[in-house]
Design a protein around this nucleic acid. Structure first.
Lengths: 343, 343
DNA sequence: TTGAAAGCGCTAACAG
DNA sequence: CTGTTAGCGCTTTCAA
């Protein structure tokens, strides 16, 4: 039960309290608690016992100010609710766990101004590094990053100019690769379905890549549609129904993500549409969810885990290839044909 | 404009730099940057201009140490990858956005020791409050929370003893309520399927509530099975197949979450099982995903958004009912019958 | 192996 | 409205 805040004189414990309780100088207490320098076994135990008994929790604010070192890594991502960024986070955590660094997450909801303010807020805590999604930022955000004097990794995308390091895939190339696969399978009337995200640059680049790939074969996108908000699975259904009603002769639909693709797939199966023969489908991301669907949706793995891991390695300065920043690391997404592209 | 990087010794900028550049005292610069106290318009503009030109980002570490105030709220949750906690986060963010407080997320992967260490790490930054999931913690974690001297909200669950405030639903009662609905619909051979999470206390409590509710009608659970890891949707399929193979006479399956429930539903539909007449199904959580499924899975809304909002309001001291901590707030989950329980 | 002194960059409290 | 002083709790540095 919390004490009544009015009579709660509880001053948070300080190093001095531990020092007095143990009869050891503050400095030595500090050494013990950080395992720095040589301290005799006897002293160490006195200190540890006192600290534990008091329930002392070090004040990292003071520690950081004094040492000019902060074990925090700022991670700035657009969203937590669509499965893709949590997996990047997982990769980051896996690496940072062994380094004494801690990720701190900020969410932008795909809004550039929000990214800017989240970044400002995080930089004001002087983190050891920043990992953020994408290469597109406001001018002010970019300036902050350039002036921060810490390693910056722009993750997920390599199509553009990075402030410092970039780790990701080329979404443009991913779109082109999909175009090639679609064409190779003999589809010619291709539609695109995406959630309407004015600032989802990566989805936009995939679409551009797709169009470029199709253009090389003299084909233009037959139809496209964008929606926003709501359940992605449901939107996938609705959009698929809508686009097929409007363009019944489509023989392929490329979805900007797996969730709406899954919705589309479920819709098609219910309607008895012959997938993949009369209609081919493909999504993007390679999310785990797809494994439980009645049929395996074609997709492309976005290398999320690897991106997270590599980004964290660069920040922590422990990349196996000795990368130290300023690099552009392009990973290659794997196309998974699944059961929704005919062969 | 950024300074010339060649003469950039990369000392981070301080208030003093802004002070010198603007010809205004550090204290007044500080006032302007925090919008505290009265500062003349002329001075304010001089300061703002200088700060912007230099690209100054305040050092919150120093600020926090001096003011003994930290605008951070520690949020400690088991996972980011299963849709439920992100929605709690959304509720928290919605409220905190208007308060100057910022959530900082820590993930425990359902491991008590990890929760303890994450908590320790976060408390060492002296946050203004803590929101964490559930009422079960290690003794050490509980002690830390009790000694922190800040508001603590244990969210998601109210079945137990809270350190300070508790906001959530009774999972035990949720299980009982589901038992009643199942019995009322005339099902009698009931199975339970859950992911094996030794520390998912809330799933455990729902199961206990279910069994208690069934027991009141003299019925015992006919079968149960637990799996762990992998794609929840896929696991739902596999587990459903397995349990039906072993107990073909089951007429109802209660899933510990919607994802495995959705997998089960897809499996049953494919196999041509008559849902809900020969087999009823229900999940838990009320996730958005269900809206896109071929049939609406029965579920129970876990009030995630509301839990997040209420928790944040308590921490921020802005709860509409004037709650200030030490309360137990039980929300009531709504049963959604969907299309998978016969009526 | 231990301790003392001097800040880290900022803000509270007061004085002007 | 603006400036001065004295720390916040810790770590660095140097001395013992």
């Amino acid at each position: 039960m919390a004490q009544d805040p009015r009579i709660d004189t509880r001053r948070p414990l300080t190093l001095r309290d531990v020092s007095e309780a143990s009869g050891v100088s503050e400095m030595t207490v500090s050494r013990v608690l950080r395992s720095r320098g040589d301290v005799s076994q006897a002293t160490r135990e006195k200190v540890l016992t006192a600290a534990r008994n008091l329930g002392y929790v070090p004040n990292k604010i003071a520690g950081a100010l004094a040492s000019q070192r902060v074990n925090l890594v700022a991670v700035v991502i657009p969203s937590l609710s669509n499965m893709v960024y949590p997996e990047v986070m997982t990769g980051i955590s896996q690496i940072l766990e062994h380094t004494g660094l801690q990720p701190v997450v900020g969410v932008t909801h795909y809004l550039p101004e929000r990214e800017e303010s989240v970044l400002y807020e995080m930089l004001s805590w002087r983190p050891s590094g920043v990992i953020l999604a994408g290469l597109e930022h406001t001018d002010a955000a970019r300036a902050m990053l350039e002036n921060a004097g810490i390693p910056i990794v722009e993750a997920m995308d390599v199509d553009g100019v990075a402030v410092d390091s970039a780790v990701g895939i080329s979404h443009r190339r991913a779109g082109m690769k999909m175009a090639e696969a679609i064409l190779a399978a003999g589809y010619t009337r291709i539609g695109f379905l995406g959630t309407m995200m004015p600032y989802d640059h990566r989805a936009r680049k995939r679409l551009e890549g797709l169009e470029e790939g199709l253009a090389a074969a003299g084909i233009t996108l037959a139809d496209r549609e964008f929606y926003s908000g709501g359940s992605a699975l449901l939107k996938g259904r609705e959009m698929t129904e809508a686009i097929l009603a409007r363009s019944p002769d489509l023989d392929f639909i490329y979805y900007s993500n797996d969730m709406i693709g899954a919705g589309g797939l479920l819709y098609c199966l219910e309607k008895g549409i012959d997938v993949p023969n009369s209609l081919g489908l493909a999504g993007f991301n390679g999310v785990e969810l797809l494994q439980g669907l009645p049929r395996r949706l074609a997709t492309m793995d976005a290398c999320r885990l690897e991106i997270g891991r590599t980004s964290a390695q660069i920040i922590a300065g422990i990349h196996p290839n000795g990368l130290i920043g300023g690099e552009r690391i392009e990973l290659t997404p794997k196309l998974e044909m699944g059961d929704t592209i005919r062969r």
